[in-house]
């Protein structure tokens, strides 16, 4: 088992979600939400929702282009949470129907894709 830490200290609870949800690129994060199962989304949302505040407080201490690899992973996790929260908290059991429509809307550019 890989025991190497992928995230800054204090965010160990989110380690199991790094592989699936720490994704570069807004379009990729949006697509991952659409392709995910309800079980995956709910588990990630419940684990991460209370940590978004502390994560941003930590990351805000540095300019974005100076984030190290662990911090960058955490940033991308929290950005994925923005998408996933809408599925879990707003759409709920409408998400499968919503995802079908959402596939036709393409993110062509996002501010988070620059200087990432």
């Amino acid at each position: 088992m890989n025991t190497e830490r992928n995230l800054p200290e204090g965010f160990e609870q989110l380690e199991p979600y790094v592989e699936s949800w720490s994704i570069a690129g807004a379009a990729n994060r949006s697509r991952r939400r659409i392709d995910s199962s309800e079980q995956e989304r709910v588990a990630f949302f419940n684990a991460a929702k209370e940590l978004a505040g502390p994560a941003l407080a930590l990351l805000d201490q540095k300019p974005l282009d100076q984030l190290d690899d662990r911090e960058t992973r955490l940033m991308n996790l929290i950005l994925s949470l923005a998408h996933v929260s809408l599925a879990v908290e707003i759409q709920g059991d409408d998400e499968p129907k919503h995802a079908k429509n959402s596939r036709h809307i393409t993110i062509t550019r996002a501010s988070s894709d620059f200087n990432a």
Binding site: A52, A55, L56, L59, I78, L79, A110, S111, S112
Partner: peptide, 18 residues
């Protein structure tokens, strides 16, 4: 985007409108 919170706020606003 000049900090993590602004980056998050913009991503959330875009995802909501989308």
């Amino acid at each position: 985007d000049d900090c993590a919170s602004r980056r998050f706020a913009r991503e959330y606003a875009m995802a909501t409108a989308r």
